[in-house]
Amino acid sequence: MFKAKLESAKEFKKVVDTMATLLDEICLQVNEEGVRAAAMDPSHVALLSLNIPRIAFEDYQADEHEIGIELEAFKKIMNRAKAKDKLILELDEERNRLNVIFENQGKRKFSLSLLDLSGATTKVPELEYHNVITIKGDALKEALKDADLISDHVIMRASPYEFKIEAKGDLNDFTAEFSSEDDAIISIEGEEEVKSAFNLEYLLDMVKGVSKGDIVKLYLGNDMPLKMEYSLAGCELMFLLAPRIEE
């Protein structure tokens, strides 16, 4: 069995929105410890991993199951979440469906038909990073939106005291600079200078669910994939994004 209740359907909508911008489908692996999932986008440039420990749920009961979900349909349903709705996710094993229930003044129940994605699980690799930037989510998001006016990709640079996002266009350019003294920065760790270039469309998709008050962790290397981590209402999201490399 699987039945889980979340305090805020609206908060979970942000998680589903973010997953749906990068992926077409995902296989949720549920067990008594919580819900996990990991998948790569169709072009194999980005990887998303989701971990919702059982403590993030108001109620939680689960045996081991793999629940394959078509994300566009799930996103459309989650768009119907209202401010005070709680969310119940419940596996109907007989009908092979996931019930998505909004609980408020009554119950509104959608039954989402499941996909067979067994065996399609993605292993999350361990990469080693020396530079870690912990930054306020809205500052990062605004800098990426600024850069989007200038180019379709950015260069991220990190040194022991500074983090920069640069975009170069044919005529114009943009730089966002954050020093460890700035309000936007929680911490900058690392002993060397590193830089990598990344596609902006992917970066903007990855920060889609981020809003004011969220804290984002960035792991950066030289021409290495970017690792990004943040939490939304107890749901831990991790992304890897392959870099652009000079030819």
Partner: peptide, 13 residues
């Protein structure tokens, strides 16, 4: 000129 690479260039997927 830079080109987009895939995650599989960095680890086995």
């Amino acid at each position: 000129k830079s080109k987009q690479v895939k995650l599989s260039d960095f680890f086995k997927v």
